[in-house]
Every structure is written in structure tokens, then in C-alpha cells.
Design a protein around this nucleic acid. Structure first.
Lengths: 195, 195, 195, 195
DNA sequence: ACCTCCGGGACCTCCCGTTGGT
DNA sequence: ACCAACGGGAGGTCCCGGAGGT
């Protein structure tokens, strides 16, 4: 058991703060106070708040749940549905707050910090890749029959999910989750037959 | 009304600043300086920066282009495509910056300002309503044949668009626009025949 | 019946505000808002906030209760006791807040505004004169037998009262009222005989 | 401790400023400028201006002269007279300005800051206790013979003193000092015999 | 006579990042 | 390596008073 690591505590606290209040809404002071470390210590571990954000994004992505996606024993579509259902459950539990840190920081910081944007891009990319591979497996198994390429489908699902989170946060209407589940997934389904 | 309207100038400048830098990233000083009015005048017109944001959101929504949607002479799907193509063109022209103010402010402020959230909700709602009516017309005309309800389709399109903007801003890869155009719209199209 | 007088309303509101929050704690905006008059009107009626304070002090003194003191049918000491009992009752009812506006403004402003100080002096002087005349009547009637001059007794009573208000506001202990009633008044009483 | 203590300097300057201009009349800028420290440093040491006021009150009370009261070699009444004479001398020297910080802050802030009120209460209480003990010694020695309890006498003396300061500041008439010396102290004296 | 709108400046507070001593 | 103290500057807000139109 490693001794309580100051840097880790700061990253943890930073993750929570950034998720709650955004980058500009979180002060270094807020973060160190929440971490229970002296404020002065911050700059021993990070060059800047921006630097912390990069680490926070990494940690957020690493600790995001992806068990459902990686469960190779199940059909691809079930894995995808389970994945987003899990994300939705967490979101509902929070009372439709916070949303996805990757989306939030993109909206807030993409134009202002190249380092943060690049990290967000990488994490989105990992996520897309993972979903792409699941879709590809579904295609190989014949479960997914659309002609659209796996990577595009993956990217689209992620975009639709991000947008759904945003819109639910503004409307506080969870009905949009149902739309996501039915409409977004419909693009994976085999073409419907004409009667 | 001879005197240049200070309030209007502040709203204009606030719109631009909030769009560029977000709510917390824009200072009242930035805004009044950009508006060319003395900072001290700000509070003659607005109770707070939050109060300004509410007005800015209103103005953003009102000045958003919706001609394409309202052009009742064209088929519904063409109108929808033209609408999002117009939004996309503006976005491309900006170099994939800024995104949609409604989405950005939702991501940043929905959990922290009830007034802002409510305004965002209302504007999203207007937008959804407009799209819903177009879709409904398309359904009535037999162009749109999916069984999903018009309102759900409209909501989904909007979410997908918001998410697409977010993800493009992080990846700087306009490929996602193509995904939106093909995949998102596919849900409107008549069921494809199996060969 | 004169039509609702803007100036009067400002003075009334100013009295209340100054009494609650002091001179520096009350803004012109607070006052005009409380008065229900447009803020811009203020300077049509008063040269400055200081100028208003002078009027407020006058009004405060004029509207202070002095019926008990003027009731020439009763013995002087009873009139004095009734006077301070009335002031005490008002003070208790307020929850030991506000104190005496004359004392408060003296503490806050005497060193900083000659005009205010002069007005306070005048009002204190009127009050002392009134009490002096009551004491003098008591002396003439043989009720008050101390050798101290009436004016000194009056001044002392007023000082003791002001100090009592101050101290009660800090301690929230109304016990000091009893001290005032017994100890301060004892100086008026005839020398006690040793049995 | 080699480094000039910034916090101490701020407290010193704050004491002087609050005493001269009151709480609302003193800005943090005034105080830090007088202290010769950068304004930005203020909030490293105090949570708020209110927080500083609490410390200032403590320091004011601690540095108040009480040698005369503690000089157990002298008769109690002489000690009390010497104490108030000393306070009066300081007050006269100031040109009847400033008064007592405890009384001033009570008048200005008692209704608006619980923390300040509580501190004022404590300091008044210490002061009363000290005077009470002197009076009690006088009673034990038979110098003070009134039947009133020592604590009430002490409280009354303090109230009368506070009120006297207030009234002198408004009238600029030091005659009230004489009244305090003769009338207020008379309550300590043994009952006068009738000739 | 009135009052909307204006404005320069100051209010308290907090920011992010550094420095110097341990 | 740590961190208390620091610091210049900005944060949002509100101040008192005046100018200019009705």
C-alpha cells in the first residue's frame, strides 16, 4: 500500500472539481483544499492548472467503466447497449448533473488550450476505437448489417451520446435517453424490410 | 432613438465573448471593453453577469439562421439538410471553434445557474419545435416514413448535432460532419429494402 | 392632504436605512429603492447623502416620543422614568437592535462630517434642554434634592442612556436596563439618610 | 522571527483605521496601504474584513491601559478615577475624536456581524470583570458602601463612560467629562448624610 | 421638475503562480 | 520535497454623483 500520494490526491480532487464546476469554475485553491494538501504544494507537482487538467482527463478516461464493452462473451449490440445503459445510470443517479467530463472540457477549453484539446482528442479516440472494435465484431458475427463503416458508427454513437447528455442537462428531461436508446441504436440494426 | 444603445452593445459583445470563451472565461471587463462602454455602466443594465447571459442566450437563439427550415416551398428533408449544412458551414468557417453557444453554456452552467439553464431549455425547446414541425410536414407529405414520432426525431437530430460539434472541436476532424449527414439523417429515411 | 411627497419619502426611507445600517452602510440606492422613488431623483432634493443625513436627524428627533416628558401633570421623576421606560420598551421590542440614531451617527460620523455633527449636537441639545426643564421642575417642587445642577443631571442621564444602549447591543443582555433604571436614577434621588 | 510580520502590521493599521473611520468607512485598501503591505496579501491572513475586525478588537482591548486598575496598592476609588482619567486624557489629546473602538464598533456593527458582536461582548465583559473586581476590593475595604452589587456598578460605570464619549464627540464640549467624574462616581460614594 | 441613463472609480474578494526558508 | 507566506492583478459588484433629454 503506497503512502498517501499527494499528487494522486490532487488529481482525484481535480477530477471531481473539474467535473462539477468546469475548468474555469475550479480554482487551484478549491482543488488543493478538497485534496487536503497545502495549496503551495500544487506547483511542485504540476506546472499549471492546465497541466493538471491533462492528467485529470487521463485519469477520468482510465477510470471510466468499460467492462461491458470488453465482455467478449456477449453479442456486440448487447455490449453496446449495456455500456451506454451503465453511463446513463450513473448520470441519472447524479440527478442529470456533471455530464461527461470529456465533453464538458471540450466545450469549454478546446479553443483555448492545445494541450487539453490534444488529450481530449486522444481519450475520445481510445473510446471510439474500443467501440469500433465491438461494432466490428458485431459485423463479423453478422449481427450488425448496416453498410456504414464501423468507425463511423462508433464516432456517431459517441457524438449522439455527448449531445444527449448536454440536452438532458438543459431540459432535465430524461425522455431524451429513450430517444438515444431507440433512435441512435437503430442505425446499427439491419435495414428494415418493406412489408 | 438617437443614442447608441449601450445595452444592445453589451449584449452583442457578451454574445461574442461567451461564444468564444465561455461564461467563466469571459469577464465583465472583457465584455464592456469589447462593447466600448465603461465597465461601470454594466450594472445599470444587468443585475449580474448571469443576467446578461440570459439575454445573450435569447439573442443568440433569435439571430440563429432558420430561413432554410421555414422555407415551406421545399421538401422537409431538403430543408433539414439545408439547415444543418448552413450551421456546418458557419462552423467550418470559424475553423471548428466556438461550437454552439447553447450547448457550450449548457455544459458549463446547467448545474450552476437555474436561470441560465431555464433559458437554454426554452431556446432548445423552440428549436426542437421548429424542427418537429418540419418533420411533421415531411411525414404528412409522405417523405418521412419512420415510425418514430416527429418530436423524438427532432430531439435526436439536435442532440446528435450538439455532440458532433463537441467531438469535432476536440478532434479537429471534420469527418464527423459527414457522419452526421449520412448517419443521423438515415433515421429519417424510408426503410431501406433488403436486396 | 398634500400629494405624496418624494422628498418626504426619501427622508423616511433614509431614516429607516440609517437607523438599521448606519450612514456608510446605507447606499443612496438602498434608500431610493426603499422609498420607491427613482434613484436619479435623489439629487434633485439633496445635495448629497450627507445632506440627507442632516434632514434625517432632524426628523428622527422630531418624531421621537416625548409625550411622557411633557405631561406636566405628573411628578418630574415619574415623567423621566416613563420617558426612558418608553424608549426602553421600543428598544426591547426591536430585539435590542438599532439603538439610538443620534448616538449611532455620532459614533460613526462625528469626526467626518461637520454638518452632521452640528445637527446631532443641536438635537442632543434640544433633548437635554427638555430633560433639564423637567428636572428643574422637580427641583422646584422639591422632589429632586441633589445639589448637582439640573443641566448636568440631564446631560448625565442622556449619556448613561446612550452608553446603556450601546452596551446592551453588544451583550444582548437586558440586565443593563435595570442598572440604568436603578443606578442612573439614584443620582436624582434625595440623599439617603442613614437610619 | 526575522521577517517583518505582515499580519501584525495589518492588525495595527486596521486598528488605527477602524478607530478613525469605522468599519464601513475603512477599506481594505486603506488598511493595507497604511500597513505598507500589498493589498493582495490581505486575504492570506484574514478570511474577510470582518475577520480582521475581530482580531483588531482583541488587540485594542489588550493594549488598552489598565495599569491604574491593577495597581493594588491604592484605594479602589482612586484606581477607578485614575483609570477613567487616563482614558479621558487620551481622548482629550485626540481632540475628542475617535472615542472608544468598542463602543463605535458596537454602534456600527452589532446588528450586522455576529462574530464582531460576540468579540465586543467578550472584551466588554473582560473590562467589566476587571472593574468589578476593583469595586469588590473597595467594598471589602469599606471604601465603597452602596448597596448596589459590584458588577452592576461596574457595568453602569462602563455604560456611562461610553455614553459620555459619544455625547462629547457630538457636542465637542468637554464639560461632560466633569459630569462623568462627579455624577457617575457619586453612585459609588457612601450615602450622604443629611445635615 | 423630473429621472433615465451614464460613468469613473472603488468596493471586497480571490485568482494563479512564485519565492525563500526548512 | 515541501509549503507558508506572498504578490500583482483581476474578479464581479456597487458606489455617489452628474449629464442630458423630456
Amino acid at each position: 500500500m503506497p503512502k498517501p500520494n499527494v499528487r494522486e490526491q490532487i488529481v482525484d480532487a481535480g477530477l471531481d472539481q473539474f467535473h462539477r464546476a468546469g475548468f474555469n469554475g475550479s480554482s487551484v485553491d478549491d482543488i488543493t483544499r478538497a485534496a487536503g494538501v497545502p495549496k503551495g504544494s500544487f506547483y511542485n507537482h504540476f506546472d499549471s492548472k492546465e497541466d493538471l487538467a491533462v492528467d485529470v482527463i487521463e485519469r477520468y478516461a482510465q477510470s471510466a467503466p468499460d467492462d461491458e464493452l470488453r465482455d467478449r462473451g456477449r453479442p456486440a449490440i448487447k455490449r453496446l447497449r449495456a455500456h451506454f445503459a451503465r453511463l446513463a445510470a450513473d448520470f441519472i443517479e447524479s440527478g442529470y448533473t456533471r455530464g461527461c467530463l470529456l465533453g464538458n472540457l471540450t466545450a469549454e477549453m478546446a479553443d483555448h488550450s492545445a494541450a487539453i484539446r490534444a488529450k481530449l482528442d486522444a481519450m475520445f479516440s481510445d473510446w471510439t476505437d474500443l467501440i469500433t472494435s465491438v461494432i466490428r465484431e458485431g459485423q463479423d458475427a453478422g449481427e450488425i448489417t448496416t453498410s456504414v463503416k464501423a468507425q463511423q458508427l462508433a464516432g456517431f454513437l459517441l457524438s449522439a451520446w455527448q449531445g444527449t447528455l448536454i440536452r438532458i442537462r438543459s431540459t432535465k428531461n430524461r425522455g431524451l435517453l429513450r430517444e438515444f436508446n431507440t433512435v441512435a441504436f437503430s442505425v446499427l440494426l439491419p435495414p428494415r424490410d418493406t412489408p
